[in-house]
Design a protein around this nucleic acid. Structure first.
Lengths: 354, 354
DNA sequence: AATGCGCATGTTAGCGCAAACATTCAAGGC
DNA sequence: GCCTTGAATGTTTGCGCTAACATGCGCATT
């Protein structure tokens, strides 16, 4: 007599038994191992056999059970996105990019926001990776910059890609977001409009991107012999409020800057408010450049000139690499250089008010 | 001699063999089935034995392999979020809410954006559910309003929760977002400020929420004997641009409305631009109320008075229900009424300019 | 002809868990 | 005493797939 355990044994999905490798094997008149070989692209299958089996697979719409496969392979076919970036648009774009590359690959995306400040963070992270036997993990800033996390992944032997601003690692484990190039683009734009006195609002120092955006900006200005003194550099925290207060501060400098570059759009939006509060007009009195080109950039007044970072594209590249990696392919290929930020000119910049 | 298949058989994670149920059983001096019983909360285990096993589990940090478990249970321990809502903040908040409830439950979240317009949409969706043997699915607007999707889930027998604006279904499968209540709140606020001539910008008719927000707004106005003629109702599409153009249109009406209620923040932001372009001031000349309280609401000038929809909270409730459902618990409980929208008063509303 | 070798396939034994079916052992009824 | 009952536990089988090993077969080598 059957035990009655709680929770009651639920038969998962539908009633009809689904098609398995055995069914395919029977239809093709081969053993299931040969079908398995076809599925896993083993070269040791006669061309003719392979075609016959593939035809039957296509016909029946069969697709192997990821769980059973995972159990046998000792790894899941899941890719994890681990992030602590609070910006929703960044997160969603990254997810979309990853999914772009994962579509049709048989992998699925599990999301895992985290809080690096939590005392149990590392332990939780490790548990997550080990339990789920993830095929791979994508890390975005700023978790991607945490070496403890990297160490855990290396130790466990889990494939990973870090999205980062700086190529500190072996090229195969990093995708660089080229923030520096973006910083340069912003500076070039302002310089070409004739601005000489420019204020800068940086992001928090805990973000590498913040340094890179600033570095690129400073490099370009230096190349053009435009000075950027410490007085004209404020440190924000990638938030609207800090953009507001830092910009207010900058506007009180003498001489007043004719342009402000904020290291992200949120802060740029804050700067727009500060300008309006100071009784000034953008871009007539002060030009503003942001960074990211998130939704907010085109929803403020005036619409922001900004630097678009190709987040989705970067996500796509990351997932492609990760899939290649976890399929055991060579890791040597250099990161494709396709993901360069681009300046988007809108209405918040104009000629220097001089 | 071992075959050398491509891709080369990668030993998934790390080298050390992980602890299994067998290890726990050995340590506890029982059979693995008893351990399994403890894990699955079978009542047929002596209290003392249970405690001993639980202690060992806690000590070793053991946690059962989800894949093996899934294979035996014929379902994965994955919950899917299927959405086609383009708003990043909505999506991320929903994800956070779901994860709030899933934390520590042993479930993971896989995300699945979709495009209902695509010809293969339904087939892809079905494949996704069947392949992954999802424990449950959460649907958000507007996929949640698609009856074909519901039909597929019913047929497969997959647990699901629909987030929707209207309780059209059995209560256990729906969580209502109470948009109607939010619409009323907006109307009440404007009425109390003395506004009599009010314009409304609705969302696209393809969204249920759009009708509900409008319905609540109209109901409240009617209760207060304030007229809302068709001239003062514009149809937007939840985008900044449509908010801009619809508001411009409304401002050209005679008499000019002293307040505008937009069915989401994006459009409200557009309305702010239209007001400025018309040479008017918000809120002195025209008050504006938005809906959602997304980031944009506090990043425009003036910061928007808006209705906050408790997206994260709704997500949490949805995941809780889904987990209960897939654990085979009773489905009868009514949706908890905790998720009501709340008015957030900022600077975009003031007394009627009369 | 006997041997070896390489390709193409089949057989068996798991992966880590839970279901179905024993089995044991104590308490209680007559 | 014998039997029933039911709680507590063990044994076996199988989820759907793959790894390791085995086999069969044709062809070149000695």
């Amino acid at each position: 007599m059957a035990e009655h355990e709680a929770p009651p044994p639920r038969r998962g999905l539908g009633g009809e038994k689904k098609t398995t490798i055995n069914d395919i094997a029977r239809l093709a008149g081969v053993s299931k191992k040969t079908v398995s070989r076809v599925i896993n692209q083993s070269p040791f299958v006669k061309e003719e056999t392979r075609e016959r089996i593939n035809a039957i697979i296509a016909e029946t719409g069969f697709s192997p059970d990821p769980q059973a496969r995972g159990l046998a392979f000792r790894r899941s076919f899941l890719i994890g996105l681990v992030y602590d970036n609070p910006n929703p648009q960044y997160v969603v774009n990254m997810q979309l990019g990853l999914l772009d590359a994962m579509r049709g690959s048989g992998y699925e995306l599990v999301v895992h926001p985290c809080n690096r400040g939590a005392p149990t963070f590392l332990a939780d992270f490790r548990r997550f990776i080990e339990r789920q036997k993830l095929s791979g993990v994508v890390l975005t800033p700023s978790v991607s910059e945490d070496d403890r996390v990297k160490a855990v992944l290396e130790e466990i032997g889990c494939a990973y890609i870090r999205i980062a601003s700086v190529p500190v690692d072996e090229p195969s484990h990093i995708i660089v977001s080229n923030d520096r190039v973006g910083g340069r683009a912003a500076a070039r734009h302002l310089a070409e409009l004739g601005h000489k006195i420019i204020g800068f609002i940086s992001g928090p120092p805990s973000f590498r991107s913040s340094h890179e955006r600033r570095g690129g900006f400073e490099d370009e200005l230096k190349d053009r012999k435009i000075s950027l003194t410490p007085d004209y550099i404020m440190q924000g925290a990638y938030t609207f409020e800090t953009g507001l207060s830092c910009a207010a501060e900058l506007l009180s400098r003498t001489p007043r800057p004719t342009a402000i570059f904020a290291a992200n759009d949120e802060m740029a939006a804050g700067a727009l408010h500060a300008i309006r509060r100071a009784g000034l007009t953008c871009p007539a009195d002060v030009s503003v450049v942001g960074f990211d080109d998130f939704q907010i950039a085109s929803s403020v007044w005036p619409p922001l000139t900004t630097v678009r970072s190709p987040t989705r594209e970067i996500g796509r590249m990351a997932a492609e690499k990760l899939i290649a990696l976890s399929a055991g392919q060579v890791q040597a290929r250099e990161a494709a250089p396709g993901a360069a930020p681009a300046l988007v000119v809108r209405d918040s910049t104009g000629p220097a008010a001089n």
